[in-house]
């Protein structure tokens, strides 16, 4: 006879798992797969795909380019105000998206903090693709930074010290030791940040609007098609599910995968000094 407690555990788990998987399954089961695919070639869907791809890639490049050195700095230096910096990085993670949208307006909008300065320079941001990019950076960079800091902190400090005593300056130490050893963690951080950016909705719709072919990203297109063409909305939703699953698998496979590359496949760094 099973103990009642075991049954209780199983029932709880079964209920919540059913609740989590049912909507995802429904997305795929409502219409046949070939219809899903054909809906993806509709004008709205193609425009949204292109806008999302362009803005996400630009935003992600900025996040990686600025975020990686920042994560290294915060992870390896002890300075006054470090915990304040960490808190500022983590704040957008818990901020409601609508707040992010209104905050971006308050900063970069015509009547915003930098409004006059930007106006004088002839730059107008709200309701442009630039606004989409800013919104994505604002919500996705904290993911990359927080996980990137953890990735750099996981690199054994004595390896950094060893590099320095072997005559390598901070720059060479970063590129030859810290970056390759943190690569696994940084890739996971990058994948999660990209997924978060791709799904950005709240801040984008407030700050950039939902103009097809300009600022209408995939999530915004789903919303706009909801009462226009439900099948297109379904198809876009299914597509985002597939992308999300791919991201999750990448992240889950990364740790063992990077250990493998670090041990046997990583390009062996030849000495570049004499």
């Amino acid at each position: 006879m099973r103990r009642p407690f075991e049954i209780l555990l199983a029932v709880c788990a079964g209920l919540i798992l059913a609740f989590l998987t049912l909507p995802i399954l429904a997305l795929f089961l409502r219409i046949p797969p070939e219809d899903l695919l054909s809906q993806l070639t509709s004008d709205v869907a193609v425009d949204a795909l292109l806008v999302s791809l362009k803005t996400s890639l630009i935003a992600h490049a900025v996040v990686l380019f600025l975020g990686t050195p920042t994560a290294y700095l915060v992870a390896t230096r002890r300075f006054r105000g470090r915990s304040l910096v960490l808190t500022l990085i983590e704040l957008p993670l818990v901020l409601p998206p609508a707040v992010a949208g209104i905050a971006l307006f308050a900063a970069f909008g015509r009547a915003g903090l930098l409004g006059d300065t930007l106006d004088a320079a002839g730059i107008h941001i709200p309701f442009t693709q630039a606004a989409v990019v800013l919104a994505i950076i604002f919500v996705s960079s904290p993911f990359y930074l927080r996980l990137g800091i953890a990735a750099f902190e996981a690199v054994d400090a004595s390896l950094i010290d060893a590099s320095r005593t072997l005559g390598a300056g901070p720059r060479r130490t970063f590129f030859r030791v810290a970056l390759p050893l943190a690569a696994g963690g940084l890739s996971a951080a990058s994948a999660l940040a990209f997924a978060r950016g791709l799904g950005e909705f709240g801040a984008t719709i407030m700050f950039a609007g939902s103009l097809q072919g300009v600022t209408q990203t995939l999530p915004l297109a789903i919303y706009s098609q909801l009462d226009v063409d439900f099948d297109v909305a379904l198809a876009l939703g299914a597509f985002l599910v597939v992308v999300s699953v791919a991201v999750l698998l990448t992240v889950k496979l990364l740790p063992s995968w990077t250990r493998f590359t670090l041990l046997s496949l990583a390009p062996s760094g030849r000495s570049d000094s004499s």
């Binding site: 004595s158 072997l166 005559g167 390598a168 030791v177 390759p180 041990l263 062996s268 000495s271």
Partner: peptide, 21 residues
């Protein structure tokens, strides 16, 4: 170093050559 602090992602040859080959 006490735990030797060898670079785990580099071969023995690259470790030794790291400080100047």
């Amino acid at each position: 170093f006490q735990d030797y602090a060898l670079f785990p992602h580099m071969s023995v040859a690259d470790n030794v050559a790291y400080g100047g080959g």
